[in-house]
Amino acid sequence: MKVNSYGHPHLTSYYEKKLNIAYVGFGKSTNRYHIPYVKTRDNMTIARVVNRTLGKRPEQAELEATGTIFSTDINDIINDESIDLAVVVTPAFAHYDTAKQLLLGGKNVLCDKPLVETVEEAKELINIANEKNLFFMPFQNRRFDSDFLTVKKVIETGYLGDLVDITVNMDHYRPNDFSEGENFDGAWYGHGVHMVDQMISLFGTPESVQYDIRATRDYDSVDDYFSVNLMYPKLRATVAATEVAALSHPKWIVYGTRGTFVKNDVDQQENDLKVGIMPGVDGFGCDTPADFGLLTYYNTNGDRIVKHIPTVTGDYGRVYDTAYESIINGADKLVSDEQILSVIATLENGFKK
């Protein structure tokens, strides 16, 4: 039997081996963006959960009933040889220390966003993982947003010709929801990490970056607004967010030499999750036709064509599918080490003088 690049045996069938997963952290993110998707996959098992405090929440009781072990000591994960993947879903400030402890303990690690604050920290963790032949990757679930997948499909089909300008917005209206903290706690790291990763996954590392990052609701609060241009040889890719948008921008606007694509609405997975509609339910995360993006382009005859593009279905659980393929079958990681460093460098440089 062959051994893959992360030290696990290659298997002849995708479903012969179950991926035993352990979580560090059991808050909203774990129970909204991670566990509901893992539950829909027959080739994965939630073996352990470690959290600083334990109660008898319904979510805990449900998992315990199916065999998940809860405890408060991260060493329970490190010492459990059956664990194939440890997932870090702690508050962001604890990502670096927690991921480092797990990697040094010999565990493959998937870490929630933002991964870490600095390139130096990211390099250290990547080096540990590579030296120990371990899987290490951030949970960039918004690579599987339906709106992003739809934009990606439109670009790849060639409707738009050569791209000139692309903008993605993340708008909210939360005029009084500001707080103090460090740069790592603001919108640029919190929201920008996803949008920067999406752009880098499409276009690679930008040649230069132009930053406008501000606190708009309260001068002493962490940043809550940014408009940042990632500059490529023939393309400007803009990522922007605000917390005071009473009327939101379109989520995506893409201009090319032959056409324009506009997608107004965000991925519906998060909206469904917030009201308790879970993955696996019919219609989960699906757009209605009224939410489809609008494509306007000129064909080779010079005819102006306008049509709606059905939304590609999103699925955050596909991050876990790619992790499975990497850990069990030796496939390349969804997010490469180079992309990890490029994203963190873009974020970190936003606050350098």
Rank of each mutant, 00 (worst) to 15 (best):
Ile340Asn: 01
Asp337Leu: 01
Arg318Tyr: 13
Thr300Gly: 12
Asp332Thr: 02
Ser342Ile: 00
Glu338Ser: 08
Glu338Asp: 06
Ala331Asp: 08
Ile328Thr: 15
Tyr320His: 14
Tyr324Val: 09
Thr313His: 03
Lys333His: 02
Ile340Ser: 00
Asp332Asn: 06
Asn349Val: 13
Ile328Gln: 10
Ile327Ala: 13
Val319Pro: 05
His308Ala: 09
Ala323Gln: 04
Tyr297Phe: 11
Tyr320Val: 13
Asp315Lys: 08
Tyr320Asp: 15
Thr300Leu: 10
Asp315Leu: 07
Tyr297Leu: 07
Ile328Leu: 13
Ala323Thr: 11
Ile309Arg: 04
Asp303Pro: 13
Ile340Trp: 00
Thr346Lys: 03
Ala331Thr: 04
Gly314Thr: 10
Asn329Val: 04
Val312Asn: 06
Tyr298Ile: 12
Ile305Thr: 11
Glu325Tyr: 08
Thr311Val: 07
Val343Pro: 07
Pro310Arg: 07
Ser342Tyr: 00
Leu347Ala: 06
Asn299Val: 08
Tyr316Trp: 12
Glu338Thr: 05
Thr311His: 07
Val312Phe: 09
Tyr320Asn: 13
Ile305Tyr: 08
Ala331Gln: 12
Val335Thr: 14
Asp303Trp: 10
Thr300Tyr: 11
Gly302Asn: 12
Thr313Phe: 00
Asp321Lys: 14
Ser336Leu: 02
Val312Cys: 04
Thr313Trp: 00
Ser342Trp: 01
Gly330Cys: 05
Ala345His: 11
Ile327Trp: 04
Arg318Ala: 14
Leu341Gly: 00
Gly302Ala: 09
Glu338Cys: 01
Gly330Pro: 14
Tyr298Glu: 15
Pro310Val: 02
Thr346Asp: 08
Pro310Asp: 04
Gly302Cys: 13
His308Gln: 15
Thr300Pro: 12
Thr311Met: 05
Asn301Tyr: 05
Tyr298Thr: 15
Asn299Arg: 11
Lys307Glu: 15
Ser326Phe: 00
Thr322Phe: 07
Gly330Ser: 03
Arg318Met: 14
Thr300Arg: 12
Tyr298Asp: 11
Glu338Ile: 00
Leu347Phe: 03
Val319Ala: 08
Gly330Val: 03
Tyr320Trp: 15
Asn349Gln: 15
Pro310Gly: 02
Ile340Gln: 01
Lys307Arg: 14
Glu325His: 13
Asp332Gln: 03
His308Gly: 10
Ile328Asn: 08
Asp315Val: 04
Leu341Ala: 05
Arg318Lys: 15
Gly314Glu: 10
Tyr316Arg: 14
Ile305Asn: 13
Glu325Ser: 12
Glu338Phe: 06
Asp303Gln: 15
